[in-house]
Amino acid sequence: MTAPLLSVEGVSVELPTPRGALRAVDNVDLALAPGRTLGIVGESGCGKTMLSRAILQLLPKRARLGGRVMFAGRDLTNLPAEALRRLRGPELAVVFQDPMTSLNPVLTIGTQIIETLQAHLGMDAAAAATRGVELLAAVGIPAPAQRLRQYPHQLSGGMRQRVAIAIALSCEPKLLIADEPTTALDVTVQAQILDLLAREQQRRHMAMILITHDLGVVAGRTDEVAVMYAGRIVERAPTSRLFAGMRMPYTEALLAAIPKLDSPPHTPLPAIAGRPPDPTRPLAGCSFAPRCRYADGRCRAAKPPLGDPERAGTLYACWHPLGLSESASA
């Protein structure tokens, strides 16, 4: 096994709120080898974005970070700002949910790509422009030379996301974090963007973290999946193993909530009742207990630790893991 490119060790993020400290990320451990892909799945508010921001060291000012983020042998949490700045781009890159917020609305996309290339790779303007056209072509933008002169608002949402990906890829990063890159897009465009990310990831042998709320998105496109709930990782396993037999009732419920193509219309969906717990009022027991149909007294009293009792590479945090026979996948 190769040494991990990224290892997240006991990372916690706390945000002060008027209602008390909000523990957005709670003691998360992750490791990612070079060239591998990890999917992080969870509902909105479960801490996915805060975790990715903790990795990128882009937390809000008031946030308190605990633990270590080791990236290529360096601890990002105590790297000086200037060193961090130089890492972003050539080593670490990110694609956000809404490309409108990551692209500057008053600059042409050409300017934005070319400036990135000049700043990080020290290219001259002509070389950067040529490279910019190549990059746009690589992310599937027709007539790339003309597009360089356009502004973000002149492009469709899908095109904008392609441009954001082109900028993220421009310095050949070792790790790309894609935070809900397709949530704002149509299904057809979503499929195209996911294909694009997968293709470029393989071609460049780049490690990638794909964050989403939809298990369907990570299924065919990641090596490993981590499911997050209420700030913690509750299940983590190689993708094929996870879908073949999930141990955690929450993962099962998330999967069941997706409308199935082969069930007839008007089949009621097994929705997960209720909502995640208030993150400023952590529960004593399992955070999923109020919504879990297997919950009992033990679940409500004690928090199950994340572990791999079967020694099979599947980590989960549950007192009553689902049996192998209970495979939920269709």
Partner: peptide, 12 residues
């Protein structure tokens, strides 16, 4: 075809 299928054995 564009619908993501939550099953890794089905290649997109």
């Amino acid at each position: 075809e564009a619908i993501p299928v939550p099953d890794p054995t089905v290649k997109p």
